[in-house]
Amino acid sequence: MLEQWVPFAAVSFIVLLSFITNVAFGSKVADWTNSAPIEVNSPWKRPRLLAGKSLVALWFATAFLYIATLPGAIVVDGVVLQISSLPALFLLASLTVAVITYKRSLAQQPNGALDERERGVRDTLYLTSYRIAVSILAGIFLAGFIAKFIAELEVNLDQIPTDTALGIAVTAAMFLWVLPSLVHAWTDPIPDEVSEETRDAWKTAKREIKREIAEIRKGVPKSEKVAQAELRRAERYLDGTLARKKSRKRS
């Protein structure tokens, strides 16, 4: 009994969460995510650690694990399989949330929360997803046709237990829902914008440090030779780094 209601509860929770974050409070959530300090690199740690492709691979592995552990799918020990499908479902639900929130949930955001480039990317994701979904459906029908009329196999869907069919239906629904996000996670190149931002921040910081050193030097009397020498060394260090960069650019 519990086995039947848990998938519904999990999916309902995710749908409700999606509604709250995307529709009801969509703009507020988008503002919050967009205002994250990109220079500090913190919002990008998760996507970079859990890179898109591995996230997608993990999602599919968990989906297959969940289907494989459904009651009736593997007839080895009914009790063990029934229990083992629950953690797989929770893992799948967690990964679904992780996929959906990939890169500020770009694939799930309304128009108002995206700029023109992001809107274009999102629309392309949905077009690709539609093509994938149609191809999968066509593949299933083709496989069924070949099995029934060419290979002349016995195709009897009534033999699939209700719990298993329900689990497969839930997984399919989840798959269709997260498909644009899966496509996004798989195709996203994770550009090195963060390092560029960091380089910009480093340049600014270097300018600030040099300005500070110049100010300090003004305040230090020339008789304080040790202090003056230390400050000069610091300046030379900063200039030297810049000089090396320039010579590398020239070559």
Binding site: E116, P191, E193, A201, T204
Partner: peptide, 19 residues
């Protein structure tokens, strides 16, 4: 201007400035 500042002024995401 930093990318973030420019992005704010023209009303796009800072990533778009990078692109």
């Amino acid at each position: 201007l930093s990318r973030v500042e420019l992005a704010e002024r023209v009303g796009v995401n800072s990533q778009t400035i990078g692109y």
